[in-house]
Design a protein around this nucleic acid. Sequence first.
DNA 1: AATGAATGAGGGTTCATTCAT
DNA 2: AATGAATGAACCCTCATTCAT
Lengths: 200, 200, 200, 200
Amino acid sequence: MQTKKEAIQQAIYQSAVNEFLEKGFEKASLRQIVKKAGTTLGNFYNYYENKEAVFASIVESAYIGMVQLIKNHHQWERNDELWDLTDVEVWRRELRKLILPMVPAITIPFVILIEGSEGTRFAHAKEDLLAVMEEHFMEHIEEFNPKYPNPQMAKVMAEQLVFGLVMIVKSNEDDEVRQQLIIEEILFFAIGVMGILKAF
Amino acid sequence: MQTKKEAIQQAIYQSAVNEFLEKGFEKASLRQIVKKAGTTLGNFYNYYENKEAVFASIVESAYIGMVQLIKNHHQWERNDELWDLTDVEVWRRELRKLILPMVPAITIPFVILIEGSEGTRFAHAKEDLLAVMEEHFMEHIEEFNPKYPNPQMAKVMAEQLVFGLVMIVKSNEDDEVRQQLIIEEILFFAIGVMGILKAF
Amino acid sequence: MQTKKEAIQQAIYQSAVNEFLEKGFEKASLRQIVKKAGTTLGNFYNYYENKEAVFASIVESAYIGMVQLIKNHHQWERNDELWDLTDVEVWRRELRKLILPMVPAITIPFVILIEGSEGTRFAHAKEDLLAVMEEHFMEHIEEFNPKYPNPQMAKVMAEQLVFGLVMIVKSNEDDEVRQQLIIEEILFFAIGVMGILKAF
Amino acid sequence: MQTKKEAIQQAIYQSAVNEFLEKGFEKASLRQIVKKAGTTLGNFYNYYENKEAVFASIVESAYIGMVQLIKNHHQWERNDELWDLTDVEVWRRELRKLILPMVPAITIPFVILIEGSEGTRFAHAKEDLLAVMEEHFMEHIEEFNPKYPNPQMAKVMAEQLVFGLVMIVKSNEDDEVRQQLIIEEILFFAIGVMGILKAF
DNA sequence: AATGAATGAGGGTTCATTCAT
DNA sequence: AATGAATGAACCCTCATTCAT
């Protein structure tokens, strides 16, 4: 049975998720959070140490997952022959295998971590991820067309891809749909990147 | 000759641009703006009616430009044969002609309008633009592959493209470079979109 | 045998002693007290009525002792010939006899009563004691040099002596040492007072 | 002419002096300060950066004076023959010459610095002064009676003397009286210390 | 044109105490 | 006997805006 204590904690947690998702850490108002959770400001501090603590309780595991992902980033595409494929549908199938394990990490807490961490000790998370991804795109450029004249696109691609994943999660609540769209998103990037690299 | 009055107005304006770009309208602090502009809080109100007025003065013409762009969106790609091209380099050349007139609109005020309008009467601008672009992507889907099973990608694409343009402007101060990257960005989208549509 | 109930009460009591000694009544935090006592805020109220009650339980007997002391203050130095002595060492010996009975009253609770009572019903205790002692010093002045031009020193002496006793207790945990220093303290005052009175 | 601005600043300053003197930094309430100054909490921040800033404005020069005093502490009693005097009245006269230059430093801000600094960056000032004074008393013990069995009294003396000066300032508003009492206070200590050292 | 004083609302946080379980 | 949830007031501080000078 769920005790009342847990019910309120849950209510605060959920209300905080909504508030942080909508406004980010700094703009989020504890007064707003507790009001929507049906309790009082003083009582909030019986459940969480402070504003950052409830934020941390939301994003912490997403952060840990992200750190893992970054640590293993050299394994992201092991089979190099992937890039030789020309049939998009085959590509899609191969990508799915590659991407599926990462999908469960891409959730609302992940979105809050990326978009709403300013002002917290997680503020560096977004930049860390972007740095790795930029480097990753850079490696593709080096490999496929070292003479590509716009390497600044690596950074743009990194930010854009992360932002795209964030948008997919925010706009779609169903897990199946999210999964599908994430595959499409990454396929889209793979095709686009190869495309602009080819010609020069 | 620039009078002193104009100089102060300019200083406030520029300081406000920096502040709004960095923090958005709501988080921006008038105290910070006037301090960096070398004047005082009270004097600010001799030049602008209030916080939103200076924001508007920055963003207004970018907004008008955007509205124009939206109004003419059906003309964005007049020559349909464009999509039949297979040589990327030719595509790039054609796109350049198409895109160049739009480039001057994609500036810092545009970025502020898109990213920092929350809490102002321009808050809807971003959504308006996204709506048109989503519709635009939708039309491409209808035209090239009506059976494409993930039409939600139209929205993702729209948000992503706008965000990419914003990132390009924020990360690159040189006009030439911005222009170049904007072309690449749109080329990237064109290729990517055609790619994921092809297979189904 | 000490029951568990008594053990907790003891723990709270001791924790409160430390907290009140360190911060005084008003700055002391019940949360801090119960945490260090290993129990909870709610449970505290099963043992004490409120914050002031636990303070009173610490300070009460010291207060009663002090009231007794004050009531008998005319007996503090019965043998007037004491003041005729010139040999310091003899003085020290006589003072010891006089002072020893008072020493057990000068303890940590006494210190808390004097230093930390603000905000409680014991707040007046310090002033009461000081008033009597000031009067006492005044009597010495009257007796030995009625023309002494700085009778305000009586008040200063009173405050200083009490404060000195407090410091001795706070800085020295050993009973023997405390006793020794209290004798020295009072001897120091006796000599000093006689000294400044003599000359005028 | 005193402008209104200065009047309010003065009112806040004076109100803060009273509050800090009475309660110390931590217990002092800005709300109380501004209420007594006849203004509002928000307006306080037009005059001072924060609570600690107004505190600093009160004690800063007293602190600087104290640091100077400590730096020169080896000069406190240059003429060693002072201690050979037996006539108290001569002693009093010599002490007066020695002490007078220090008297202007012993003011209300000094009292606040010593008694009310906890929680501020001046918190160490009291201990610094006490350490030097304890050492100073220790030197006297070493010089006049190295076998004195209660060297812990050096610390007690230090705390007591400082406290005595504080009390003199708090209890007497007239500068002449303060001066007179400070002389007596230090004479009292000189006599007392020499007295308890003599016998062993 | 320029200053900055003044206001009032809102921000996060700590507190002693009460109460249902 | 024990828990800790709940309350409401107080804490320091920042804010955009108004206004008298």
